[in-house]
């Protein structure tokens, strides 16, 4: 029976395979992925071996094989460290506020933009709001440092309008947090509308025509057609964002923070950089980033499962 099925199988596939590839055996396909496979091996998988140093007291002179193993020492130190708890909180505050606002703002903006019937106007708006996404945080922090400085335009305007004293946007903990959150939304909301605009253009116009015949106002149409049609994509974007609750954006914080506001502004990634590359605490820094990666991994897997369960989303 087994032999029977296997020949049957062969009979079915052989002609197909020869027609498809002939002398061009899919070896070519293996060769095509080879460069990417090798690069990923060297630059992504090899460093994973280096994670062992999170359990060592790594010394460059002793190497990975010679450095003494210390078990969970660095992890114990990490959890007993008040400062680590503080930066974890900071990271969560930044990341969660950004995730929520970067859903609400682009969603609302897409709804408003969808009402624009003048195509030229619509396209100009899109060009303008997508732009900040492409500028680097080095550029933007340069701009923000200038704008938000004591003699910057923002403070001048506030003094002029409300007669208040200059605000230390980047020097006061609370203001720093607000600056980080809102400048990120300012940079990314436009770009994040793309996905919603795409979903909006996919809504069947017949739905609106039917609603019109039934005498539904535009408000009613938005509430009962547009928003329900966007719900699946909103769920996908929201669940996938779950994977980044520990990503507070290193580039942004790194280019805007200063020792003055470490208590409210330091995040896990910047801490890892300072401990690891500046202070040379290789093992401790690796332990901290391993902890972060593990949490991130679990969250990403959960978020993909949720996105698949609730909206049938798969990445490939």
């Amino acid at each position: 029976m087994d032999a029977m099925t296997s020949t049957d199988h062969n009979l079915k596939t052989t002609p197909k395979a020869s027609k498809r590839s002939g002398y061009r055996v899919p070896v070519v396909l293996h060769l095509m992925v080879l460069p990417a496979v090798l690069l990923v091996f060297v630059f992504s998988y090899l460093p994973m071996g280096g994670i062992v140093m999170a359990f060592q007291d790594y010394k460059a002179s002793l190497g990975f094989t010679g450095s003494p193993f210390v078990g969970l020492k660095h992890f114990r130190y990490m959890f007993e460290n008040d400062y680590f708890m503080k930066i974890t909180m900071n990271t969560l505050i930044f990341a969660c506020s950004k995730i929520i606002l970067n859903l609400i703002v682009p969603f609302s903006f897409a709804l408003l933009l969808n009402e624009v019937r003048h195509m030229g106007f619509k396209r100009s708006i899109q060009t303008m709001v997508y732009l900040p996404h492409f500028l680097s945080w080095v550029t933007l922090s340069g701009i923000l440092i200038d704008l938000l400085g004591q003699t910057g335009v923002a403070n001048q305007l506030l003094t002029f309008l409300f007669g208040i004293k200059p605000i230390f946007f980047l020097g006061d903990g609370t203001w720093f947090r607000l600056t980080i959150i809102f400048s990120d939304v300012w940079k990314e909301f436009g770009f994040n509308t793309i996905i919603f605009l795409a979903a909006l253009s996919g809504i069947n116009p017949a739905l609106y025509e039917a609603a019109e015949v039934d005498g539904a106002s535009r408000m009613k149409q938005t509430l009962h057609i547009t928003i329900p049609s966007l719900t699946p994509i909103l769920i996908v974007v929201a669940t996938l964002a779950l994977g980044s609750v520990l990503n507070a954006n290193f580039d942004q914080v790194f280019n805007l923070y200063s020792p003055m506001i470490y208590q409210q502004g330091d995040i896990i990634d910047t801490f890892v950089y300072r401990e690891g590359l500046l202070s040379g605490q290789f093992s401790f820094a690796t332990a901290v980033s391993l902890f972060k990666s593990m949490i991130g991994l679990v969250l990403i897997i959960i978020s993909y499962r949720l996105a698949y369960r609730f909206a049938g989303y798969r990445i490939f």
Partner: peptide
């Protein structure tokens, strides 16, 4: 192959091992 690539999206060794490499 696909999983081989996707795993690197889900998990990375972090800053210090990358630097040492």
């Amino acid at each position: 192959y696909l999983w081989y690539f996707v795993i690197t999206m889900l998990f990375s060794a972090g800053l210090v091992p990358g630097y040492i490499l």
